[in-house]
C-alpha cells in the first residue's frame, strides 16, 4: 500500500455534542486499517456544555506529538470553535462545518470547505444527538480517512454494549452524511 498522507485532525464543539465520541470512531477507523493512531481529548472542569475538542492523528509512522495545533482536517461543530480554530488549519486542509449551528462561511481560500446542516438532518431523521456521526459520514465522503470496512468496524467497536440498540441509528447517520452533496 502506498504511503498515505498523515492526517492531523481536530474536532471541536460543545461538550455533550459527542465530539470525543466522533473522534474515537475516526481513531478506531484508522486502527482497523492498521495505521498508527492517537486520540487526545481536551479535558477541563466542565463535563457538559463547555467547549470540547479532540485531536486525532492517523499515520503510517509512529505519531510524534498527539496534540494537533495545525490540523489538516478540521470539523467545526459550533461557532466558537469555528472562530477559534479556523485560522489554524494548514493551507490545503479540509474543513467540515455543521451549517445548522455555524451561520458563517470560510473566508480563507486556501482550504477546502464543506458545509452540511448536520444538526438539522439529525433532527429531521429522528436521530437525536446524531449530528456528530453525520459529520463523520460527510468527512469520510470528502477525505476517506479510512476504508469503508474499517469505518463500519469502528462504529461497532465504539458503540457500547448497553447502547447496542443505537447501532442502527449510528449507521443511518453515517449514511446520511456520506450521501450528502454540498
Amino acid at each position: 500500500m502506498a504511503k498515505s498522507k498523515d492526517l492531523n485532525m481536530l474536532l471541536a464543539g460543545f461538550g455533550g455534542q459527542g465530539v470525543l465520541f466522533a473522534g474515537k470512531v475516526i481513531a478506531y477507523g484508522g486502527l482497523m486499517d492498521n495505521k498508527e493512531i492517537s486520540w487526545l481529548p481536551s479535558y477541563g472542569p466542565e463535563m457538559r456544555g463547555g467547549t470540547a475538542n479532540c485531536s486525532i492523528c492517523i499515520s503510517d509512522e509512529p505519531i510524534g506529538s498527539p496534540l494537533v495545533l495545525t490540523p489538516n482536517v478540521f470539523v467545526a461543530m459550533n461557532l466558537p470553535s469555528f472562530d477559534r480554530f479556523i485560522n489554524d488549519v494548514e493551507p490545503g486542509g479540509i474543513v467540515v462545518v455543521d451549517s445548522t449551528l455555524i451561520n458563517k462561511k470560510v473566508e480563507r481560500t486556501d482550504v477546502q470547505a464543506f458545509y452540511i446542516p448536520a444538526s438539522r438532518l439529525a433532527e429531521e431523521n429522528g436521530l437525536k444527538g446524531g449530528a456528530n456521526i453525520i459529520l463523520i459520514g460527510k468527512l469520510f465522503r470528502e477525505c476517506g480517512f479510512c476504508s469503508r470496512e474499517a469505518l463500519d468496524k469502528a462504529i461497532e467497536k465504539c458503540v457500547p454494549v448497553h447502547k447496542a440498540h443505537l447501532m442502527g441509528n449510528n449507521k443511518k447517520a453515517l449514511e446520511i452524511g456520506m450521501s450528502y452533496e454540498g
Binding site: K24, L31, S38, P41, Y43, I63, P66, L67
Partner: peptide, 9 residues
C-alpha cells in the same frame, strides 16, 4: 495529563 488522557493502540 497528555499521556494519561490520550488513546493509542
Amino acid at each position: 495529563g497528555m499521556l494519561g488522557q490520550m488513546m493509542e493502540p
